[in-house]
């Protein structure tokens, strides 16, 4: 079930959002529950702390007691998988940095083509809830936020005794064990070697004769052992 959490201090705007969400969800025939708030009050904060899955937050940027940005930060401290959509009149919030930092899906201008933009965002949100998973791990004062779909493979650096997470854009070396990290991931990761797990979704080709694995970005590795060859 999808949990939709709406917060807007303006009654008219709030009712407009509720109405549009109800129409959208009914049309998509998706079971959902809505939580409506006028302000970022204690009940709202409690809901952030409650462990329920598949949350979509529709947040007003400015309310009398707090800023939606601060609330988004608070949400992200608790979970990285829920979807945040900002309802705002502030155009400048399209800033890519803020978007990545708080990992929000979109900001929707309440006064500009609101209905269709909300529908688009909710569509995108539902797709993401099906597939998106974030790996967030802390290693010696550094917090890494990695979209799991960006990970190509995870391997062990026996020389430095650290685990390497290879993504499209970086190679991250952490002091966690390989098993610890695999424990945080889902079943799209398969073992190809005693010290290597690959992201099956990113796999393009496996050359079992020459023991070479090719990923969808063209990168190759040779960490394929006889023991695990048949499972790939």
């Amino acid at each position: 079930m999808i949990n939709i959490i709406i917060c807007d201090d303006n009654k008219k705007d709030r009712e407009n959002v509720i109405k549009k969400v109800e129409i959208f969800m009914t049309n998509r025939k998706i079971e959902y529950k809505k939580y409506v708030f006028e302000d970022y009050d204690k009940k709202f904060i409690n809901l952030i702390d409650t462990k329920i899955s598949s949350k979509i937050y529709l947040l007003d940027i400015e309310t009398p007691s707090a800023s939606g940005i601060d609330i988004a930060r608070r949400i992200r401290k608790k979970d990285v998988d829920s979807i945040i959509i900002f309802l705002t009149g502030h155009e400048e919030l399209g800033n890519i940095v803020l978007k990545n930092d708080l990992m929000f899906l979109s900001f929707i201008n309440k006064f500009d083509d609101f209905g269709s933009r909300l529908n688009n965002s909710l569509n995108k949100a539902l797709d993401l809830l099906k597939t998106r998973k974030i790996l967030r791990l802390n290693d010696r004062n550094i917090t890494y936020t990695i979209d799991i779909s960006d990970i190509l493979y995870i391997t062990k650096d026996s020389y430095e005794r650290r685990t390497i997470i290879k993504t499209d854009y970086n190679e991250i070396k952490v002091n966690h064990s390989l098993n610890e990290i695999i424990g945080m991931l889902d079943n799209r990761f398969i073992q190809t070697h005693r010290a290597c797990y690959i992201n099956n979704d990113r796999l393009r080709k496996v050359d079992k004769t020459n023991k070479i694995i090719t990923f969808d970005n063209g990168e190759t590795i040779d960490l394929l052992s006889d023991k695990y060859k048949k499972d790939v």
């Binding site: 990545n100 930092d101 990992m103 550094i142 917090t143 890494y144 936020t145 854009y169």
Partner: peptide, 12 residues
Amino acid sequence: SVTTELSKEVFS
């Protein structure tokens, strides 16, 4: 104290 965060496009 200073902590660092790194994601795909953002360094904090």
